[in-house]
Design a protein around this nucleic acid. Structure first.
Length: 773
DNA sequence: TTAGGGTTTG
């Protein structure tokens, strides 16, 4: 905790102290009492030069006088300040300053006999969770130096200004090593004006970047420069940038986190922070309690607060961190093989904790920071991927923890100070873990071990659910009897069956790979083109300059401009009119020439439909069919190259002339001569029922998972939902006997070509049970 | 200078 310099201004009657601490009088100080939540206030009447102990720790001694007890025989006390705080205090303290010490320890004063002061001394240090408030002596000269800051709300920011502001953290990337010379942190703020500001902060000293630990924290930035970037205001560090960060929880102690040695902090600041906390509580979605290793969900991403017990180099692009949080992951976890000599950390402890540590493999840009971490430090690792490893033995697959390269999603590593309340809580919990018990766990199943943690009830009910009711159900054919898999394998096709089986494995394991594009006309399947291809195609089409002859026709208005960058790219947007009028953006179809993929996604947020076009000889045309012919919402619509005969864009005019154009993708496709491709999940399930394995295909637009295949690639939420569904259908690391039952309706069919004849099986009229979704 | 959140998958 820092030293706070509070400048006295007229009318400030009290020190702005955290509400949780209470004042203690000099004559009530007693040895053996806990003063963690108490403060003592006095006037500095004497201070000594900054000294160093033998181990190099700084120590600063101050004598405080209790001015409310001047008549007492003993009215002064020695205060010893240790560590970084000693240095900070020695720089700012002046005789006559009012000095408040919060969260101190009391020890016998070795000099009481000689100096005639109190028999005890106050001991203050950052490690003990102390805070020191220094309050300038209220003389006239102080009035003039007290700075009064003005704060700009986020909707009032102007390009080219340098401002002070407050904000609630909506998103952040913990400081990481940039490709330049500095550390970088990206922070997105919101405030009650409902505006949003993304700030890019650089500093050569990582300590000088805001100490943000979670979404919802509140920051105060001084002297941040505002610039316009991509049509939006952006904050960037300027000379003299300074920040304070506060816990955003209503009612939590208001203690600024900062590297500034001196800053103003008065009643007004307290008021602002309290107001922002209350506003954020109802206006910002803050996720629930942080994940523990015991609550890890396979295939999802999570933030972990933990202690570092070991680290090791693995190879040129990855580095291993061994961490624990006192709980046990309910799934078998991957242990990264490393050379014994490369593993840094207390060998005895590493061995003791071997069943409780998680191996986290960090990649690329995170390696440098990871290498510099101190064993024993407390970390919050953001966006760890709980990846499902491949099935490497009979017992099924394991979970791997990866911190992938890059900083998307705020991926990174933050070091938490020991004074952080969550670290204090974690430390207490770690101290309470019985290590002998955890070592015995080796012989227990993961599930039994899990019963030591809190969410045992959830897990058990989930397991029971899996063992009793089938996790998939039929939507029809309820009166049909089950057929076993062996009988099906021995029968001729085509036929239809009802089966009850377990899902032993499925492909692809990477669920996003299961999404394909299907043409219902020629029955072909193809991969969904990647964005890079589309971007490439857009760049190609941007080479042809827009032809102004095709601008502003009877059914659309055109606006053209040139980008300010070196490329001087020309962009045209054609706004389709209806009834001679432009409609609301949410009902409007726009066509764009020369745009980038990013610009196109931005347009889809505002307009109903976006069609990428280019100028050809005879008018506007679609791009080639490797690109989507339409973007709507989050979905890119593609056409079949084989079955489509693209028509010129002017054919769309007929739809625009309709009374109420709905701009349905199928209608647009039809008038443009496009045979649309449909998004579909294609998966291979290996089912078992004790009579034999059967490979069955799932070919599903949206009925089985109740998730539209068209939307999954652009929705993190839907991907997580699907992953969770698959984990329920086929829980990783579970023995065959513990797998849930699936009820399915399948049909067999023949596929013949000149050389061979094969029977295939496909799931029909089946859906995931309602309570699994 | 760095990065510029809107995405991750060894």
């Amino acid at each position: 905790m820092p030293v706070l310099l509070v400048k006295i201004v007229n009318g400030l009657s009290e020190m702005p102290l955290p509400s949780c601490v209470q004042k203690e009088e000099l004559n009530n100080l007693r040895e053996g009492v806990d003063y963690a939540n108490k403060y003592f206030q006095g006037v500095a009447i004497l201070s000594y030069p900054l000294m160093k102990l033998e181990d190099g720790t700084n120590v600063f001694k101050v004598v405080l006088q209790d001015t409310s007890n001047l008549c007492s025989r003993i009215n002064s006390i020695n205060v010893l300040i240790y560590g970084k705080m000693a240095e900070d205090c020695s720089k700012v303290l002046q005789h006559g300053d009012t000095f408040v010490v919060a969260g101190f320890k009391l020890a016998k004063s070795p000099t009481a006999m000689e100096d005639g002061r109190h028999s005890c001394q106050l001991e203050v240090s950052e490690g003990a969770g102390s805070a020191v408030y220094v309050c300038g002596y209220p003389t006239l000269s102080c009035f003039s130096v007290a700075p009064k800051y003005a704060y700009t709300s986020l909707n009032q920011l102007k390009d080219g200004t340098i401002v002070n502001l407050y904000g609630v953290v909506k998103f952040f990337k913990p400081p990481y090593v940039s490709k330049g010379t500095d550390y970088c942190s990206v922070v997105t703020l919101v405030d009650p004006s409902n505006a949003k500001l993304t700030c890019t902060l650089f500093s050569g000293n990582v300590d000088c970047l805001p100490k943000i630990y979670k979404v919802g924290d509140i920051v105060r930035f001084h002297r941040i420069k505002i610039r316009e970037y991509n049509g939006q205001m952006q904050g960037i560090t300027s000379g003299g940038f300074a920040s304070l960060t506060f816990d955003g929880t209503v009612g939590a102690p208001i203690v600024p986190r900062t590297c500034s040695k001196v800053y103003t902090f008065m009643e007004e600041e307290l008021k602002t922070i309290n107001e922002l906390r209350v506003w954020a509580a109802s206006n910002l979605s803050i996720s629930g309690p942080p994940a523990k290793l015991s609550g890890v969900q396979p295939m999802l991403f999570f933030d972990l607060t933990c202690q570092l017990v070991g680290k090791a180099k693995v190879d040129g692009s990855s580095f291993l961190l061994k961490v624990w949080d006192g709980t046990k992951c309910p799934y078998p976890t991957w242990k990264v093989p490393v050379e014994e000599r490369d593993l840094e950390g207390e060998k005895v402890l590493l061995n003791q904790l071997r069943n409780l540590t998680a191996d986290i493999l960090v990649y690329d840009n995170h390696m440098q920071l990871a290498k510099s971490l101190k064993i024993g430090s407390f970390l919050r690792i953001y966006s760890i991927h709980a990846k499902q490893g491949s099935a490497d033995n009979e017992n099924g697959s394991h979970i791997e923890f990866h911190l992938h390269g890059g900083t998307c999603y705020g991926r990174g590593i933050g070091v938490l100070p020991e004074s952080n309340p969550e670290v204090k809580e974690l430390k207490e919990f770690l101290d309470s873990v019985d290590l002998s018990e955890s070592q015995d766990m080796e012989s227990m199943s993961a599930l039994e071990a899990e019963s030591t943690s809190n969410n045992v009830a959830d897990l058990e009910s989930h397991l029971q659910r899996c063992q009793q009711l089938p996790v998939t159900v039929l939507t029809d054919h309820q009166d049909m009897k089950n057929t076993d898999l062996k009988t099906i394998l021995n029968s001729t096709a085509p036929q239809q069956y009802r089966i009850r089986a377990k899902l032993r494995s499925y492909k692809p394991q990477k669920l996003y790979q299961s999404v394909k594009l299907h043409c219902s006309k020629c029955n072909s399947l193809q991969e969904v083109p990647i964005d890079d291809d589309f971007d490439f195609s857009l760049q190609g089409s941007a080479v042809t300059a827009p032809n102004t002859i095709f601008h502003n026709t009877s059914w659309y208005d055109s606006v053209m401009w040139t980008t300010q960058d070196e490329k001087q790219r020309k962009i045209v947007i054609h706004f389709v009119r209806h009834d001679e009028l432009l409609q609301q953006p949410k009902d409007t179809l726009v066509m764009i020439e020369g745009g980038t993929l990013k610009e196109m996604w931005k347009l889809t947020k505002r307009f109903k439909c976006v069609i990428p076009v280019r100028s050809a000889e005879n008018g506007l045309q679609l791009l080639d069919l490797s690109s989507p012919f339409l973007l709507q919402g989050n979905v890119k619509y593609y056409g079949c190259k084989q079955c489509s005969t693209p028509k010129p864009i002017k054919s769309l005019g007929s739809l625009a002339a309709e009374q109420q154009p709905s701009w349905e993708p199928t209608e647009i496709a039809q008038v443009l001569g496009i045979e649309p491709l449909q998004y579909v999940f294609v998966m291979k399930f290996t089912l078992v029922d004790g009579t034999g394995p059967l490979n069955v295909y799932l070919f599903d637009y949206e009925k089985f998972f109740q998730i539209p295949a068209s939307e999954i690639l652009t929705s993190n939420y839907l991907q997580q939902k699907m992953e969770m569904t698959m984990n329920t259908l086929c829980p990783p690391g579970r023995k065959l006997a513990d797998l849930p039952w699936l009820e399915c309706f399948i049909k067999s069919y023949n596929v013949k070509d000149e050389t061979k004849h094969q029977v295939y099986y496909q799931i029909f009229d089946t859906t995931v049970a309602e309570d699994v979704i």
